[in-house]
């Protein structure tokens, strides 16, 4: 069952404070967070969060496509080290 619209998106309050602080500082930094349950809001776009996966912080650079998803979706708790094959990485 989906979340009721009247509640609005859930986000841990301290994330908003951290995002504002980071944006104000203007530094290239990764903001360490543990809140995997928080929804990604439009004001997070452009920032990089280090989302904890239970062991370490996984860098997540927030883009517009991620709005509405949860932070935890981008930091898996189990990592499968497969084979590279012919796969390519794109430098942004």
């Amino acid at each position: 069952m989906t979340r009721s619209v009247w509640k609005g998106p859930f986000v841990d309050g301290y994330l908003l404070k951290k995002a504002d602080k980071s944006r104000a500082s203007g530094r290239n930094e990764v903001i360490k967070i543990w809140s995997r349950r928080s929804t990604i809001l439009p004001q997070f776009v452009g920032l990089t969060f280090g989302v904890h996966n239970g062991q370490k912080h996984i860098p997540v650079n927030v883009t517009e496509d991620m709005i509405g998803h949860k932070f935890g979706e981008f930091a898996p708790t189990r990592i499968f080290h497969g084979h590279g094959g012919d796969k390519k990485a794109v430098k942004r």
Binding site: G13, S38, G50
Partner: peptide, 27 residues
């Protein structure tokens, strides 16, 4: 590689989680 600077200390974790629950807006 320019190693990213991680901000926020590990001590903040428990503090933040409790703060989050208070201001979450969840009913």
């Amino acid at each position: 590689i320019n190693r990213p600077e991680l901000t926020g200390s590990d001590d903040e974790e428990s503090e933040e989680q409790s703060e989050g629950a208070e201001v979450s807006g969840e009913d």
